[in-house]
């Protein structure tokens, strides 16, 4: 983790939580606070939102004062993180169309390459093995009805 010179991601994150906590309290008030004797649906989330705001505020002050807020991982790590996340998203988007077996195989191959498994034989073996394992575990053993897509 390297520190970015200006804006740090952690600072932004805690600030978002501060806003979120305040928003929760405001929205909860709208649900009906009631009274302590007759609590409405908004009473409990109002206090939870207030707690989030207070804790975030203190953490934000601490992060700003110490200047220890963390940013994104180093370039190589950020690339791996982004590609891994994209592969997850690919699986979700393509699974209904291509079916779980094909997509699982493709996604596993992509995961292997993102994590720098050398050559093409090992990634292919791992992806084929994983797809077979997923089929046996979920389809054959647990009878889960998964989309088969092009394999119909």
């Amino acid at each position: 983790m390297h520190k970015a010179p200006g804006f740090r991601l952690e600072t932004g994150f805690v600030f978002v939580l501060l806003v979120l906590g305040s928003a929760i309290s405001v929205i909860s008030w709208g649900y009906g606070f009631g009274s302590l004797a007759q609590p409405g649906p908004g009473l409990y989330p109002f206090f939870v939102g207030a707690a989030i705001s207070v804790f975030s505020l203190f953490i934000l002050i601490a992060v700003l004062m110490s200047g220890t807020g963390k940013s994104l991982p180093a370039r190589e790590g950020a690339r791996t993180l982004a590609l891994m996340t994209l592969t997850f998203c690919f699986w979700i988007l393509a699974m209904p169309l291509l079916g779980y077996v094909v997509v699982s195989m493709l996604a596993t191959y992509a995961f292997c390459k993102v994590m720098k498994l050398e050559g093409w034989r090992k990634p292919l073996a791992v992806s084929a093995g994983t797809a077979l394992f997923i089929y046996l575990l979920f389809d054959y053993w647990l009878y889960v009805d998964l989309p088969r897509g092009i394999l119909g």
Partner: peptide
């Protein structure tokens, strides 16, 4: 190696939660 293990775990997470 994690390059072998993590893809399998990821797929179990994906299919497991969907199922």
């Amino acid at each position: 190696r994690p390059q072998v293990l993590l893809p399998v775990i990821s797929l179990i997470c994906l299919v497991g939660v969907y199922s």
